[in-house]
């Protein structure tokens, strides 16, 4: 039963990605940003990335996971400012 809710959430969000609502989806992806692209130089700096060294981050995550009871949702949520 505990597994069914995340499955439903993921299914709902995935269906938003993949089906119907194409025009709404397009509008959401093209909304006017309040931080303009030319204002993102600081955000594009590698020192603003939670995962700028993937090999070292993956290893550090493994060191803690092997010695702690908790797992998951660590190491930042991907994403970024899309300005490599």
């Amino acid at each position: 039963m505990k597994q069914s809710m995340p499955i439903a959430v993921v299914t709902l969000l995935a269906s938003t990605f993949l089906s119907g609502c194409a025009s709404t989806f397009k509008e959401l992806t093209e909304i006017e940003p309040w931080v303009k692209p030319y204002e993102r130089s600081h955000l594009a700096d590698p020192i603003m990335s939670m995962n700028r060294n993937p090999v070292a981050s993956a290893y550090t995550k493994h060191v803690f996971e092997a010695r702690e009871g908790a797992r998951g949702a660590d190491g930042g949520a991907g994403g970024g400012c899309g300005c490599n």
């Binding site: 993921v10 992806t29 940003p33 994403g79």
Partner: peptide, 17 residues
């Protein structure tokens, strides 16, 4: 994994399985 930008690329939503 799939990730998608919204709101003028200010928001990134990601799903992982």
């Amino acid at each position: 994994g799939i990730s998608q930008d919204f709101f003028g690329d200010l928001t990134t939503l990601s799903l992982d399985y």
